[in-house]
Computed example of a mutant assay.
Amino acid sequence: MAGRVEVAGGHVGGSEAVLTPGALAFVASLQREFGPRRDELPPARRSRREEVARSGRLVFLEETAHVRDSEWTVAPARVLEEVALADEFADFLALPAYEAVSDEAVSDEGEGEDEGEGGAG
């Protein structure tokens, strides 16, 4: 597959607008440049996970020590408020449609209708 990309799978509408010859050539160049490194990463990740599980220690890169050693904070999270709002919204969405309509609205709809309009017979 040197220099060329094969698109597998069924046709997707509009794909010809995205998968142009130029775009496919770009993907091929990325694969040529970074493919070998991409192939190395999954086994390296597996090995790292196994080492952490075995030793119980995370070993960080020396070149990132300045980040860990510096003074920094993050903005306070509003997680609890957002979770409460999300829960309320989810509860609202779970209501059956007939429960979301008040009894007044239902009784008001029936008032004033002429039996001759829209009737069955």
Score class of each variant (00 low, 15 high):
Val79Tyr: 10
Phe92Ser: 09
Gly121Phe: 14
Val18Pro: 01
Leu41Asn: 01
Val106Asp: 02
Gly121Val: 11
Thr20Asp: 07
Ala120Asp: 15
Gly14Met: 08
Glu111Gln: 09
Pro43Trp: 06
Ala77Cys: 05
Glu113Leu: 12
Val59Thr: 13
Pro43Val: 07
Ser107Arg: 14
Val101Ile: 15
Val12Asp: 05
Gly118Cys: 02
Thr20Pro: 00
Glu111Ser: 04
Leu61Thr: 09
Glu81Gln: 12
Met1Arg: 05
Thr64Ser: 09
Gly14Arg: 04
Val83Ile: 13
Ala44Phe: 05
Arg37Gln: 11
Ala77Trp: 02
Arg4Asp: 10
Glu82Ile: 11
Val67Glu: 04
Asp87Phe: 03
Ala90Trp: 01
Gly118Pro: 00
Tyr98Leu: 05
His66Tyr: 08
Ala84Lys: 14
Thr20Phe: 04
His66Ala: 13
Glu51Lys: 12
Asp108Val: 05
Ala28Phe: 04
Pro96Phe: 01
Asp39Ile: 10
Arg57Pro: 01
Met1Asn: 04
Ala105Trp: 03
Gly119Val: 05
Gly112Trp: 11
Leu95His: 11
Val27Ala: 14
Ala8Asn: 09
Ala75Asn: 05
Gly10Glu: 14
Pro36Asn: 02
Gly14Asn: 08
Phe60Thr: 00
Glu115Gln: 03
Gly112Arg: 06
Gly118Asp: 11
Pro43Glu: 07
Phe34Met: 08
Ala65Thr: 06
Leu30Trp: 04
Arg48Glu: 08
